[in-house]
Nucleic acid binder design. Structure first.
Lengths: 206, 206, 206, 206
DNA sequence: GATGAATGAGCTTTCATTCAT
DNA sequence: CATGAATGAAAGCTCATTCAT
């Protein structure tokens, strides 16, 4: 007995995360995962029931957490409304940083897997669902914005913007920067969008 | 019952485009393509030399076209500079519409394949290359913008924004709207970004 | 109608001979044959019923001829017996040359196909049969030779020598020399063996 | 029912040797090999990486051994020179027997595969290389023989004889005799050639 | 006569999964 | 706990042959 049970389980999970990030669930090779984890195919099945099983062991906590976050978003939202309206850059930054604290460095990779590589699993629709929610939320903000003139734009434009916005976030998460750097970038990126939308609309009125 | 050569060839190509869009080059199943096209594996090889061969038959014209577009971009760029500076929405819109005319309805799907599903082919790097160019180009615009203060942002932020921007475009192209609708959306989306960046920066100065 | 019927038939046969020589019947590619003959798969089947059919069209005349030669060999054999016994090099050479006249340049390639590449056809056993005959014939000569002491050698040695002898002939036929050169080489080679065997046995008596 | 690893691996190798001997590398059917070995295609790949892999597993040791033998041939050659000159049949026989001891029964089949069936592998040229060496070596012996008159014969005759000689060896190896019998035959065959050449030349002087 | 589209069986290889040891 | 042998389905591809045009 060379490696303790939990140790090996963790190692498999780590290598699985790496493989899922690189190739997504479907193209991920179990053989490669176990080889990198220093064990065998057979033994893998002592720890997990299937390829799907590792996938869910890895992703479900993050999935649930994201779902929970999204559901309770409106409440959290109130908090920063004032700062947002006044465009208080500093306050918002601090708020967002606090919000993401430790979240990204723990869950960032797995979030990417969920969005990018969940084809073939029960989480396939996550990106779509997330985008729907983001679009709704974004829409609400727009509706409260006086400068926003619905009739000028295609009704799907908000969902397109949401998709672009989300991709930026993923791009940050996918990069091999440190957790800290990722957080910094993320905040800047989010603020850019937040202010950008408002100002943009002002600009296009004419 | 025999089908005319060109008819079947086109059908194979159509089904291949569909399959490549859904699964990318590597995971695309030839058997599925031919089944949907109503023929057999063996017959497929009367029309194309290999899986790669169909892929390139489909993508190369679009690839070349995009490359050509990117190389000659700077020249085209000059044209709209005036309108852009003055934020003349109408003029710009017309210009962009003219630019994309017929382009999207013909090449949109294939462009998506090139960006999303070219792993395993010689076009793998297309997304990366395109993003590099977009980032450079975007950077240039920023450097000419007085309100842009480099020191305030992470050096990679522009490339993140470019990635988000590109994803929005892909999202439009991926949707099952009519070609006309896609063009409309695309123009709105591009303008939104164009003006957004300027205004956004103004907003963040404070 | 570009090519006359017989002309194309001949061309197919020529290219088939080339392909059969290079790869044997089984590995020979019909597609390559027709491509090189400047026609199509479909048209091939207007001239021949199958891959086997061309093979037999090419080989059967030679096969029959060789069989006939072998059956009537004993008669021909008498002719040179005197010269052989007296080791009259010149006379034998002329005799052999006369015997092979035009035979090699017409049938050499096809003979090689029959021996080397007939696997998968009804002529598979030709090499074996030929070797059996050659061995028998060779055995007869030996039995008439006083210096030959059966008990000294393995009973299969003659058949082995026959196999080696035949291979030399094939090697000559396979080379890309002119027909004339091949004939010359062949005669030298045959004489070498004829005299060699006699002298060899004398030498090994001790 | 499971079979021990080594047992099956050996069985696969044995059946592969059989298949390679019968059809050569290219036409050998993996399906047939595994069927005869009593396993499945899938399982084959637990033992070997590819069809090439089994081929090299089988042939490389023999290939290396033959190469080594050929390189060191000149040294070994000296030993028997005296006996050869004096045509001492007994001594030579013993020498050759010692030289091949155990070699043939272990490697004979595989040697045949290397010479006859290596098309499509990195050992394709082995027959050619071997013949070149044999011809060179044979040529040297001839040049030392006073009765040999170059001008009388075609320059390629030695290489033809070498080819015939090699084929005899292969014919012995291909037969389904016992290892011991093969060795005996081989020795007789080699000596026959050794003495034959000398005597033959003497005979043809006239 | 000529074309090449169509077929189906064969090929080697990869894979996730099961299970005897 | 661990091993890796075994399985079977699917992958991309080649081939000789048939047949509608």
């Amino acid at each position: 007995m060379q490696v303790l049970k939990e140790e090996l389980r963790d190692k498999i999970i780590q290598k699985a995360i790496k493989e899922f990030m690189e190739h997504g669930f479907e193209k991920a090779s179990l053989r490669k995962i176990v080889r990198e984890a220093g064990t065998t195919i057979g033994n893998f099945y002592n720890y997990f029931k299937s390829k799907e099983d590792v996938f869910y062991a890895i992703t479900t906590p993050v999935y649930d957490s994201v779902i929970h976050l999204m559901k309770n978003h409106s409440e959290n939202d109130e908090l920063d409304l004032e700062a947002y309206k006044n465009m208080n850059f500093k306050v918002l930054k601090q708020f967002i940083v606090g919000f993401f604290k430790n979240y990204i460095r723990d869950y960032g990779d797995i979030f990417v897997i969920l969005i990018d590589g969940s084809k073939g699993t029960r989480y396939v629709n996550m990106k779509e669902d997330l985008l729907t929610l983001m679009t709704e939320h974004f829409q609400e903000h727009l509706d409260e914005t006086p400068s926003w003139d619905k009739s000028l734009f295609h009704k799907d434009l908000p969902s397109i913007i949401a998709a672009g916005f989300l991709e930026g976030i993923l791009e940050i998460l996918r990069g091999d920067r440190s957790g800290e750097e990722k957080e910094g970038l993320l905040v800047e990126y989010i603020l850019l969008y937040a202010f950008g939308v408002i100002k943009m609309l002002d600009g296009m009125k004419a």
